[in-house]
């Protein structure tokens, strides 16, 4: 067992466990924080797999921006800090959700292992570096990349438009800043 694999297993266990806590914790803020841990450990996994840029983007965008957004949302919606029983649905719903989760995960794992299980790959250093990724994105993936920028802009505008208060809207319509 190589050092990479040991590192991977450690990160994977951390990621899986924190993911579990993120969806089961009774405290809302803890959920968000466990998500941070989970996403961070995933970034580590990306590094192990040689995807340096993806790992960095993961940390920057997910851990840095998305989770902060989530925590902001929790604060704005006056989420309780204490353990709350109302975070989950009734026990029956939890049971059904567990079954569905097990089924999806099981089937996914089963098919993936059946298809590519037992394959060993050589992780080449430098293949996920900034230079090759940059060349790829700005040559072959240029059009999707530009489309994504438009999507992001649209999402930005949409988020602002949706979340404005009626009072803000009225003020805009009256033309008084």
């Amino acid at each position: 067992m190589s050092g990479l694999e040991v590192l991977f297993i450690a990160l994977a266990v951390l990621g899986g466990a924190s993911g579990l806590l993120a969806v089961t914790s009774p405290r809302v803020v803890h959920c968000a924080l466990w998500l941070v841990v989970c996403l961070g450990s995933l970034a580590g996994v990306y590094l192990v797999l040689g995807a340096e840029v993806v790992a960095l983007v993961q940390i920057l965008v997910y851990v840095g921006a998305v989770v902060v957004l989530v925590i902001f949302a929790l604060m704005l919606t006056r989420a309780p800090v204490d353990p709350s029983p109302r975070l989950n649905g009734p026990p029956l719903q939890k049971l059904a959700a567990g079954a569905a989760g097990l089924a999806v995960g099981g089937i996914l794992a089963g098919t993936l292992i059946y298809a590519v299980g037992g394959t060993e790959v050589q992780v080449r250093s430098g293949q996920g570096g900034a230079k090759p990724i940059g060349e790829a994105v700005f040559s072959g993936w240029l059009l999707p990349f530009e489309l994504l920028s438009v999507l992001l802009l649209a999402a930005l505008v949409a988020a602002i438009a949706v979340s404005r208060r009626p009072a803000d809207r009225k003020r805009d319509e009256d033309g008084t800043r």
Binding site: A97, A100, A103, V104, T111
Partner: peptide, 17 residues
């Protein structure tokens, strides 16, 4: 909404199986 999402996953599982 959770119920609708459940249908989606159930459907995915059924189709896969």
């Amino acid at each position: 909404a959770s119920a609708y999402a459940a249908w989606v996953f159930v459907g995915a599982v059924v189709i896969t199986v």
